[in-house]
Write a protein that binds this DNA or RNA. Sequence first.
DNA 1: CGAAATCTTGAACAACCTCAATCGGCGTGG
DNA 2: CCACGCCGATTGAGGTTGTTCAAGATTTCG
Lengths: 200, 200
Amino acid sequence: MTAAIAIAMRTDKQEVSPLAIFANGQTIYSDGEKCDWAYRVAFGAVSLYRVLACGRRQIVSFHLAGEWFGIEQGRRRQFTAEAIGPTGILCANLAADQCSALLPAVLDALWSAREHQLVISRQSSHERVAAFLLEISERTQDKRRFDLPMPRADIADYLGLTIESVSRAITRLKCSNAIRLVGPRGVEILDRDRLRSFCD
Amino acid sequence: MTAAIAIAMRTDKQEVSPLAIFANGQTIYSDGEKCDWAYRVAFGAVSLYRVLACGRRQIVSFHLAGEWFGIEQGRRRQFTAEAIGPTGILCANLAADQCSALLPAVLDALWSAREHQLVISRQSSHERVAAFLLEISERTQDKRRFDLPMPRADIADYLGLTIESVSRAITRLKCSNAIRLVGPRGVEILDRDRLRSFCD
DNA sequence: CGAAATCTTGAACAACCTCAATCGGCGTGG
DNA sequence: CCACGCCGATTGAGGTTGTTCAAGATTTCG
């Protein structure tokens, strides 16, 4: 957490502090820090990741507008949280008595984590990318036409692939007319069923 | 859930019912069922899995003695839970007011799920198997010498590998003198540091 | 407009999977 | 008691998929 933001948050003792704004690539919290706060994305996106001993980075989850992250009561941070593009974050104090509000968010996170396990352990590169596009689609406003908040490198580190494999898979989905690209970030789903059929 | 067990559980309206015993391979609950209960392993082991459209089975977690599973309040079961070997299960009613007790268990599950994500997305077969042995070791009584409750097929479906790859990795760990096998199920960790060094 | 970053594409290689045979323990029955 | 069959685990050979390394294309931004 950068100093400026930490001060901004500490000035507000309410349950939910005002918006804290992070620039692209800025760290919200780091692996190993104490867990004092839970967070919610107001706008933009956040990635949770760890850099492994071998130097590779694994992103375990993305969090889009409206979604909670960083609920890890009574522990040290398991991962680093980083803003993807300009991102607004709402902060909530991690008091024990709020568990009734936090439990659903944690159950959601567990649900997502396990669905993601299915994707990254057994699926081919095309299946992973197709599943990823559908996943993002379901979590954004316009489910047909949306912009990926993150670069290919982040998608690759999330899906356990290389940038090249992600690119090739996207190209193939494009050539099959399941999707259309609007620049590198814009995605339009032309045939959701066909896209789904790529998910095995 | 088999009829016999369901009756045994329904007769007890307490928070924790007496032990229900399951045979090897018996289903505790199935994908899609209502979530009325949370469970705790008394003895034996449990796997949570789903069979994908392509016919492959993915195990998302193992649960050993003392561990909670099946906390999925207000949803349908995301996975099927199955006993590995003779297994005793304690059942708890999933009342909303117990969230203070359940939250830590869910946070644990989320923690484990994400650590597992790191293993299955980026690691080689040897790294996965080494990490798996260390993980099981940390969760059993005798951390140096223990028996794997599950067959190779389950390990493979958990690590996103084939039986053959698991077998080859184990053979390699054995030949490097990091571990010793006592029959196919028994494992003795001879050199924990070396085993850890395989985890990259 | 130009430079840097991001994305795409290509070719050779390595890792894992598939298919297949073999080994080993264990229970049954001759 | 031993032979047989079964099931799980191991080992081997060849094919597929994704990675690596490298070059080129596109986008972004000062």
